[in-house]
Write a protein that binds this DNA or RNA. Structure first.
Length: 933
RNA sequence: GCUCAGAUGGUGGAACUGGUAGACACGCAGGACUUAAAAUCCUGUUCCCGUUAAAGGAGUGCGGGUUCGAUUCCCGCUCUGAGUACCA
């Protein structure tokens, strides 16, 4: 029979499901291999051809590893909490759980069609209570932990309490809030229980912190940064303001150094590691205290100094002003009566701007003088204090020292406010802009005059430490992560409040179920949707009303797959001891500073409290490239009055007419040729369209854009599978190019892959489509083709070069077709080799070859034998001055000297040399002969 | 601005450690089979000059360098894509 991909694929997909072919074993002597895909958010739009790219690659890898004798864990699930389902619920009233369920069903159907070897018995959904029970449980562990810097790990909060009871706060070296109390053991014991809890909250790894959020009063809701455009809500266009709120936060900064160091131990793409490094943003510098000059308004101040962080402490003698963030806590105190109006106006103006606007508007200089001064701690000079919104409250200390000679931003600021600009290096040229150079010797700089950068930095820090005005300091850009959203469709936080203090619910009450609400909107008073839940109340207090952010559920899910149905633990000790970590993780780079960072953080925490074994969760990571859309256009002719007509001009001719481009559905275009009948049928208005053709065809224009419905460039895998089958789709997606490269989707070449699979099928059949395979001894040529591909696939898969394997398969099949190969031994090995890429057709042929159904997935990958590839001759390229002129067959047993003689004796070579003797002859054995004349 | 990745025929791409540039496939052109189409098969296809063929020349974004030899290594630039930013 001809290649009936539809029947074959359905049959085997059913077989795999019925027989649980890909169920991973938890107890086996085989070595383990864990291949993980980033689980998808099940969106309403379903899958387009870009989504499965990474899944196909990981599936090929997983299947390959099974053939190589590994016990492979290759699971799939859904990151099913998220905003779109909630948005949809707000609009339609449909419960997000229902929407999510529907979407998952669509995803599952689409995934099944592609023939993935997932172990579905381990499926997880982050929105299912038996899953988020463990998300909540891990939150509780974080709440019950603090970071001990001395041990450089997280420890139980009870250990901290023990320390307080014995020694008070002395000797505690923790990552914690800034305003912690100092107390003795007796003072601690004398504290009320509530005061103790209040103090402990400053140490916990998840804690409450006042954070600013984008608050939209009209919508009564908090918005994400990308939902705000120019200070107005994207939805509705209402004004948005910055509002302070108590929010749950995660003390990820405790792990900053370990997150940075860990990057050197994992096999991830360098650009991705670089992104995380930048995000963590370690900078080494110094903190310096500038004493406040007695203020002009003569009020007794609480603060006596302003602390700044700088990476260029060597420039301290160039300081001519100081700038505070408008939100800095000392601003009010420092403002003199004369400057009060100015400062308040400036603060009001800043408040209106979102953080994004403040960053975007980098060009204009703005600020206001407080009227107060600090003293330079090293030379006692008076330094005026300004506020300006280019200084961010959230970074460093929220205050910077202004060195206009060395920093361009400070330079502009100084020019604008007419402040001094003092050069500090003899090489500095500061006539038109700042010069941040570190070369040269210091000038105007007191005791560091004449020193170099390195010497000066060390000298200044030593002096500052001596006079207790500063010290060397490491600063991180990364901030603690906010862990709360004022939304409905997320994990409830397992916390209730009593007398204003948070308490964990009892572990036996987990999961804390997401309650039902009448509407998915905030309440009239601006409380989150959970406030609408009737009767949702803890016996001892009020539940937390915010839910966890999107990244909560995805920060440990790879452990849940190890033991997905365990209701005692998130995964058993044994399961974790066996599977340990993810060997290969495939997904998009868009998660670089979100999911991938938070996951590493939680993993390190779980290791600290001895729940997991590995410091890093994902040993190797591959980013698949984005599949872009490829839009097609028709060109509508514009008449003299500038109105659109119903005539369309082919792309090659648009230079001769006045036209306007129009997106056209890519599914009616093949190889840029428009299917005119489909176009006419597309919409009524085009039913009597006319066309100006070239060579009898209408050629469409092409542009690369994001894949989206509105651009009519979405290609659905279902359509392609219906037309060519899953095996063709799988191979074609790989054939498209290197996995890690972003590329536009283009269906044009898919025929070639389809033809290839048919040709492969034909190898096993005679002209009448009767299965015909002979058991004879394979020929040398057949074995050579076979072993070439065995080696090639092995090499390619190990380095994730799937596109080149597909080419090589084509070459192998072309060769074997030419050899009229129908040898059982050769073809059977070929089936195993190809099965990772095109599993359905291979399963079918495997059974036809007389093997037991379903055993192919666990067959042994053929052993490569180099003996079959040994050549005794090689067609040496003979080149003169690096240009190849001809090829000569020469025995590979000849040594370079003999080759040279043989080549020089050749009549054709003599002709090229034209009687001259080459100056030099380079012979590389098995590669090339080059003559220099 | 900074960081990273990339640029090869009409198209997607190959060339793994410096050694025959353009594998494989699409498209296109021509042909066979066919009443016709589909399917299949064959031939050609980097460009220029020339043309029955041959022979020549140029050629991997641009300019330079190292080398017997560079798509590959080095220096400078242009463009494209991604990430990121008043980070002190």
């Amino acid at each position: 029979m001809d290649y009936q991909f539809k029947d074959i694929e359905q049959k085997w997909q059913q077989f795999w499901a019925d027989n649980q072919t890909f169920k991973a074993e938890d107890k086996t002597t085989k070595p383990k291999y864990y291949v993980l895909d980033m689980f998808p958010y099940p969106s309403g739009a379903g899958l387009h051809v870009g989504h499965p790219l990474g899944y196909i690659a990981s599936d090929i890898f997983a299947r390959y590893k099974r053939l190589k004798g590994f016990n492979v864990l290759h699971p799939m699930g859904y990151d099913s909490f998220g905003l779109p389902a909630e948005q949809y619920a707000i609009q339609t009233g449909q419960h997000p759980a229902v929407t999510t369920e529907d979407n998952i069903a669509t995803y599952r159907r689409q995934l099944d069609q592609i023939g993935f070897s997932f172990d579905w018995s381990r499926e997880v959904r982050t929105s299912s209570p038996d899953y988020y029970k463990w998300t909540q449980w891990i939150f509780m562990q974080l709440f019950n932990s603090w970071y001990n810097k001395a041990a450089d790990k997280a420890e139980s909060i009870t250990k901290l309490v023990e320390h307080f009871e014995k020694n008070g706060s002395a000797g505690v070296n923790a990552v914690c809030d800034e305003e912690i109390l100092s107390f003795t053991a007796d003072e601690w014991k004398a504290m009320s229980s509530n005061s103790q809890q209040e103090e402990l909250l400053k140490y916990r790894l998840t804690y409450l912190r006042e954070s600013t959020v984008n608050w939209c009063p009209a919508l009564g809701t908090v918005l994400a940064n990308d939902e705000v455009k120019d200070g107005f809500s994207e939805r509705g266009g209402y004004p948005v303001e910055q509002k302070k709120m108590m929010q749950w936060s995660m003390r990820i900064t405790a792990y900053a150094e370990r997150l940075l160091q860990g990057l050197d131990t994992i096999d991830w793409p360098e650009p991705l590691k670089e992104m995380q490094r930048n995000w963590i943003g370690k900078s080494i510098g110094a903190s310096v205290r500038f004493p406040i000059e007695k203020p002009a308004h003569n009020i007794e101040l609480n603060a006596h100094y302003i602390e700044v962080f700088t990476t260029r402490v060597d420039t301290i003698f160039g300081v001519t002003f100081m700038v505070l963030a408008p939100e800095h806590e000392l601003v009010a105190e420092l403002t003199t009566p004369g400057q009060k109006a100015n400062i308040e106006a400036y603060i009001a103006q800043t408040k209106k701007k979102s953080e994004l606007d403040r960053m975007a508007d980098a060009k204009t200089v703005s600020g206001a003088f407080t009227g107060s001064y600090v003293l330079n701690p090293l030379n006692g000079e008076l330094v005026p204090i300004y506020i300006a919104d280019y200084v961010l409250a959230g970074y460093g200390t929220g205050a910077v020292m202004g060195v206009p000679s060395g920093d361009q931003r400070d330079y502009l600021f100084a020019k604008h406010f007419n402040l001094n600009i003092v050069p500090i290096l003899d090489t500095q040229n500061i006539t038109t802009e700042a010069d941040p150079t570190k070369e040269g010797k210091y000038i105007n700089s007191d005791f560091i005059n004449g020193l170099t950068y390195k010497e000066a930095t060390a000298a200044v820090i030593a002096k500052l430490e001596e006079i207790e005005a500063g010290k060397a300091k490491v600063n991180f850009r990364m901030r603690d992560a906010i862990f709360g959203r004022q939304r409905y469709w997320g994990e409830p936080v397992p916390v209730y409040f009593k007398e204003g203090l948070p308490h964990l619910i009892s572990e036996s009450d987990l999961p804390l179920l997401l309650p039902e609400v009448d509407k998915y909107l905030p309440t009239e008073s601006g409380e989150p949707p959970l406030a609408r839940a009737e009767g949702w109340k803890h016996p001892d207090g009020e539940y937390e009303l915010s839910t966890m952010p999107g990244w909560a559920g995805s920060s440990f899910y790879w452990y849940r797959y190890m033991d997905a149905h365990n209701d005692k633990e998130f995964a058993s000790k044994e399961a974790i001891a066996y599977w340990r970590d993810v060997d290969l993780y495939i997904g998009g780079s868009e998660h670089a500073t979100g999911h991938l960072l938070y996951s590493r953080f939680w993993n390190k925490f779980l290791k600290d409290i001895d729940l997991v074994i590995e410091e890093e969760p994902f040993k190797k990571l591959i980013n698949q490239g984005m599949i872009q859309g490829r839009s097609n256009f028709v060109y509508r002719l514009i008449d003299e009055e500038g109105r659109g007509t119903n005539t369309f001009v082919s792309h090659g001719l648009i230079g001769q007419y006045k036209t306007s481009p129009l997106h056209v559905d890519v599914n009616m275009v093949e190889n840029e040729v428009l299917n005119i009948n489909k176009f006419k049928a597309w919409r009524d208005e085009y039913s009597n369209a006319e066309f100006i053709l070239e060579n009898g065809k209408y050629i469409c224009g092409v542009e690369i854009e994001k894949m989206s419905k509105s651009k009519f460039n979405v290609v659905n895998p279902d359509d392609l599978i219906a037309r060519y089958g899953a095996d063709t789709l799988r191979m074609y997606e790989m054939f498209l190019g290197p996995l890690e490269q972003s590329k536009p989707w283009n269906t044009n070449g898919i025929e070639g892959v389809f033809k290839f699979l048919r040709k492969f099928w034909r190898l096993f059949h005679n002209d009448a489509w009767v299965f015909t395979v002979l058991g004879a001894e394979p020929t040398k040529a057949e074995l050579k083709s076979l072993h070439k591909i065995i080696r090639k696939v092995e090499e390619d898969v190990e380095r994730f070069s799937f596109n080149t394997s597909v080419s090589s398969f084509m070459i192998a099949i072309n060769e074997l077709t030419d050899l009229k190969c129908n040898n059982r031994r050769v073809l059977q090995d070929l089936v195993i080799t190809l099965s990772a890429y095109a599993p359905h057709i291979c399963e079918e042929l495997w059974v036809m070859l007389g093997n037991e159904a379903g055993t192919l997935s666990y067959a042994a990958y053929p052993k490569f034998n180099p003996a079959y590839l040994v050549e005794d001759e090689f067609a040496y390229p003979i080149s003169i001055n690096g240009k190849t002129k001809m090829n000569l067959n020469i025995s590979l047993s000849l040594e370079p000297k003999e080759i040279e003689e043989f080549v020089l004796a050749n009549a054709d070579v003599k002709k090229y040399l034209d009687g001259k003797q080459p100056k030099k002859v380079i012979v590389v054995k098995g590669r090339i002969v080059n003559m220099v004349v």
